[in-house]
């Protein structure tokens, strides 16, 4: 069960952080923010190693999985697991699952991947809203609703 998802912009400013408040330990905004931001260093690290690998040795050692947008499990704590996804446009999508709840502890990688891909599709739709300016926080209620749906149904 996903506890929280976040969309983080090019300059590491949060564009959207949403969660479902059924888990009492993460029921407040502060802990969500903290959880999501712990993952940023791990994300940056993955991205820089990707770039060094490709530019340093002339793409001979380029592994195909390094070019995948889905970065997999970034970070895990006693209670949470944090998964990351970075788009070509440097938008970072973060998904946090709870490892204490029974459905979250044995979640499969493929499920997280599809959830993040669907989140990316939702984000692309939200960006195409003409009232949304690039770099602004996403305030669309439709987006919020769709993301909450995604969290309840998919993962």
């Amino acid at each position: 069960m996903a506890v929280c998802v976040a969309v983080i912009g090019k300059d590491n400013s949060p564009l959207y952080i949403g969660g479902i408040g059924n888990d009492t330990s993460t029921d407040n905004e502060l802990s969500r923010q903290w959880l999501v931001h712990t993952a940023l260093d791990a994300l940056e690290e993955r991205l820089t190693t990707t770039n060094n690998n490709t530019s340093g040795s002339n793409s001979n050692t380029t592994r195909t999985d390094m070019r995948d947008l889905y970065l997999g499990l970034l970070y895990s704590t006693d209670t949470h697991k944090i998964y990351g996804y970075v788009t070509n446009t440097r938008i970072k999508l973060v998904l946090v699952t709870s490892s204490t709840s029974p459905s979250g502890s044995n979640i499969r990688d493929a499920e997280v991947r599809t959830a993040l891909r669907r989140l990316h599709a939702l984000y692309a739709d939200a960006i195409c809203n003409p009232f949304h300016l690039p770099g602004d926080q996403i305030t669309s209620q439709k987006f919020d609703k769709q993301v909450k749906n995604l969290m309840l149904n998919n993962v």
Binding site: T54, T87, T89, I91
Partner: peptide, 17 residues
């Protein structure tokens, strides 16, 4: 251009350079 790029690169692997 800014908006369409988000959609176009959705199914695309990360650009090398």
């Amino acid at each position: 251009g800014y908006k369409i790029m988000e959609r176009l690169t959705r199914e695309w692997p990360r650009f090398k350079d």
